[in-house]
Amino acid sequence: MMENGAAAIEQEDRRVDALYDGQTALTAGTLKIASSFRRNEALFDGLRVIVVETGKLECGLPGHDRFTVAGPALCLVWNRGAEEGEHVFSGGQTLRYTAVSLTPTFAAHVSDDAALRRAGSFLSDNPHIPALRISRIPESIRGVCSQIAACPLKGAGRSLFLTGKALELTGIALESTGDGETGGTAISLADAERIRAAKDLLDSNLAHPPALAGLALAVGLNSRKLREGFSRIFGMSPNAYLHEARMDAAYRLLSSGDMQIATVAYRIGFTPAHFSVAFKKHFGVSPKALRGHADI
């Protein structure tokens, strides 16, 4: 039996940031759901990019068959007009999400109908049928979501930082949901699992990661197949991914304010001197400055 939302949600941690003169909104949060419930709500007028990191929900949109979004998943909805959607949330789960909403006017500055078509959004001349696209989450979007969640800034600095991250997330989402892979041989399911296992090995060994040859040997692939397959699945080489993962981990650790900069550097496989240079180049702010904000 479906309950109403208030009774079914055991715990909700939701944050909404209005950005760029109110034309962009960033919503992020976690829902701990005790029992299943249904929620009807008006669709956002414009472009909405939704990252579901964990959990799942069943959705209904005008002009579309019912569908399920199960994390990790990326969902784009382009809607014009006063339409309504329905969401059914299953009980006994934790749903973690990040969403960016762009008004039609602002969306025109960062995209256009042609870009949305290239993203597979199935634009229609019927304004009562929202455009929809669901795909996997690129690893680069995971990193952006982590930076959004860990942002320690306040006031104008926070708004500028989050505006940039919201647009970065939108840009990656539109690019990654394009017409699909072009050229090359399809990656088998078995090889895709081996490549994801390689990513997991890098994630769990940031301080002492294996070299490409050792990583390939560990997952049962040759170096060329691992390097090419990794780039196709995650949008970057294993070395580039390792650097992104190290920087994201450092940002989270420094934002917590509980760990010294040198300790963070060694934790992710850097000397303190090299770490400071790499961190500032990656984020545009020094580790010391970020720690200063975290301590406020």
Rank of each mutant, 00 (worst) to 15 (best):
I129Q: 08
Y241T: 00
E58C: 11
S231E: 01
Q260E: 14
T182H: 06
A192P: 05
L31A: 04
G92D: 03
A186L: 10
F37L: 09
E53I: 04
T170G: 15
V77L: 10
A114T: 00
R117P: 02
A262G: 09
V77A: 02
D200S: 13
A119W: 01
T94G: 09
R267G: 06
E86Q: 13
R224C: 01
A213V: 02
G91D: 08
L254D: 04
Y241P: 00
L290K: 06
L217Q: 07
A186I: 13
A25H: 11
L47T: 09
R232F: 00
P210F: 09
A99I: 02
I172H: 05
G184N: 07
F44K: 12
Y251L: 05
T103I: 04
I187W: 06
A216T: 09
E53N: 10
G71S: 11
V277P: 08
T185F: 12
A6M: 09
P130H: 04
L169A: 15
R142H: 12
F230P: 01
I233K: 12
S237P: 00
I134W: 01
T105D: 00
V144E: 13
S124A: 12
V77Q: 01
A150N: 14
L57I: 06
I9D: 08
S255W: 02
T24N: 15
K225L: 11
C145D: 07
S36R: 10
V69H: 04
A108S: 14
K32V: 09
A250Y: 02
Q260H: 11
